[in-house]
Design a protein around this nucleic acid. Structure first.
Length: 270
DNA sequence: CAAGATTCCTGGTGGC
DNA sequence: TGCCACCAGGAATCTT
């Protein structure tokens, strides 16, 4: 799924293309009216001042004070080449070259909206997003304090986006494996040393995946259509039944917070 | 408020 | 081009 490394890769490709361009028109294509595509018409006439990322959200501040916000969901793809089907949003830019940005999203779990000042409450997760894991804002002390506030499974806490931004199902499993932490461990039960290991593991896993251009399992693609190469380096995600890379015992699968979870019951302890 | 459950959606998969 | 039930999953929304 598109998580921080995938969205970061997309953002890097979009930034040189879109920054400074003026929106001629933006709107829904093959999609029903609704909160997932709200307010797009308002982007017309405004210049894209920057292409940034907050967790899994792509945020583009506009010259008129609004902002375009995109979440890729599970299957969302941003592209400069016209897709054959499942186009949800089209943004037309002023100028002759590369003047169309398409949002293709077969499953429609993604969002593409234009928000005015103070309207981020329309995206509650964005409004309460946690610190960026690859920035200095992600401090061990604050991470420990946030984890200490709840007894939900540590994996569920990581997926919540409030303790740390941008971690999804793939990298939660990978980080917990590296930190040798059982995914069902109550968040607040983690000793400080283990929190520090998890903090480091999250940063390692995400930065390595960013260097690989993300993880392509099925739908995710870089903006130029190429695959992210991190899939072959995954140690546990999607590998249930395969041998643990460390101890060789079969990796097991369970469900935590309605999410498939793969881990090593021997190496990862509560 | 916290925590868990449900919902959205459709391509891919596996069983028959 | 066989048919079809079932699954995956991020975030919003609903329920407890």
């Amino acid at each position: 799924m598109p998580e921080l490394p995938e969205v970061e890769t997309v953002k890097k490709a979009l930034a040189p293309w879109l920054t400074g361009r003026k929106v001629r028109r933006a709107g829904r294509v093959d999609a029903p009216e609704g909160p997932k595509y709200r307010g797009l018409e308002r982007a017309a006439g405004q210049r894209i001042e920057a292409v940034t990322r907050l967790g899994k959200f792509i945020v583009m501040p506009l010259s008129g004070g609004d902002e375009l916000v995109v979440h890729l969901g599970m299957t969302g793809v941003l592209t400069g080449e016209e897709p054959r089907d499942h186009v949800r949003v089209l943004v037309e830019l002023e100028g002759r070259s590369q003047s169309r940005l398409w949002f293709r999203d077969p499953r429609r779990f993604g969002r593409f909206v234009c928000l005015g000042p103070g309207e981020r409450e329309h995206l509650p997760t964005l409004a309460r997003i946690g610190p960026e894991p690859l920035s200095d804002a992600f401090a061990v002390g604050a991470f420990a304090a946030a984890l200490g506030k709840t007894r939900v499974a540590v994996k569920a806490a990581l997926l919540g986006q409030r303790v740390v931004a941008g971690v999804g199902n793939i990298y939660a499993d990978e980080a917990l494996f590296r930190a040798r932490i059982h995914p069902e461990t109550p968040s607040s039960a983690l000793a400080r040393g283990r929190v520090a290991k998890l903090h480091a593991a999250i940063r390692e896993v995400l930065s390595e995946a960013v260097a690989d251009g993300g993880t392509t399992l099925r739908d995710y693609r870089q903006v130029d259509g190429s695959r992210g190469e991190h899939a072959e380096r995954l140690m546990v995600y999607g590998r249930d039944g395969a041998p643990c890379p460390v101890c060789g015992r079969a990796l097991v699968r369970t469900v935590i917070g309605q999410r498939g979870t793969t881990f090593c019951a021997h190496c990862q302890r509560r």
